[in-house]
């Protein structure tokens, strides 16, 4: 009983009531480091897959083709809102918070590429990877037709008794080679590096 009286007296103090109802806090403002789910901007997606490549959360983003247009699709259930996809996109297709302002201000960016690695012990040199690679198929139809390389422009071919990677930079990371290698001898790794862009020349 005593305590009840105590509480009533305590909470009915005018000072407290004034404080409670008229307290002022700083206005709510989204901080610059806050990231929501990435959203689409008006910019056109080129289907470079950089966003997919950098995304650390499995199944969070996929670049899909809808009719004739490519576009990223974010799956909120998987997305951890790290914002890396926004930063990585060279075209500014996605946005979330002021990430892009920050990268612009700091002149930072992500450089990304794919790294192909072949385990010579597992590799049979069957050529499946070289021939199934869609980039190779486009560059050298003869390689696609016969397994014989006629061009130095292909990503990889069988040369000197092993798979030789000639143009790693052309790899689009589609992982066809990886799925078509029966021995899992070839691996496509996504390589990402943060870089400081040089000052623009005046």
């Amino acid at each position: 009983m005593r305590s009840f009286v105590y509480y009533v007296r305590e909470f009915l103090r005018p000072e407290w009531i004034r404080k409670f109802f008229f307290a002022r806090t700083a206005p709510l403002e989204t901080p610059s480091y806050f990231k929501g789910y990435p959203t689409r901007t008006e910019k056109e997606c080129t289907g470079c897959f950089s966003c997919m490549m950098i995304c650390p959360a499995p199944g969070a983003i996929a670049v899909l083709r809808k009719k004739d247009e490519w576009g990223p699709e974010v799956y909120p259930g998987h997305c951890i809102r790290c914002g890396l996809c926004v930063e990585a996109c060279p075209e500014g297709v996605l946005s979330s918070g002021r990430i892009l302002d920050v990268t612009d201000r700091d002149r930072t960016a992500f450089a990304s590429w794919y790294h192909l690695e072949v385990d010579d012990n597992l590799c049979m040199r069957c050529g499946n990877c070289c021939v199934s690679c869609p980039v190779n198929r486009q560059i050298d139809p003869q390689l696609a037709g016969t397994g014989t390389s006629a061009s130095d422009e292909v990503i990889m071919r069988i040369e000197g008794g092993r798979v030789r990677i000639l143009h790693m930079e052309k790899c689009t990371g589609c992982t066809t080679c990886e799925t078509q290698c029966p021995n899992r001898a070839i691996r496509v790794a996504r390589m990402v590096e943060g870089v400081q862009l040089p000052e623009a020349e005046a």
Binding site: M124, R125, C126, G127, N128, C130, V131, S132, R137, P141, A144, G145, T146, G147, Q180, P182, N183
Partner: peptide, 18 residues
């Protein structure tokens, strides 16, 4: 074929452009 005729798939069947 992968074991015994490794290039059969890439030269003649699965992957070869026709």
């Amino acid at each position: 074929p992968i074991d015994a005729h490794p290039r059969h798939l890439s030269r003649y069947t699965r992957y070869a452009e026709g």
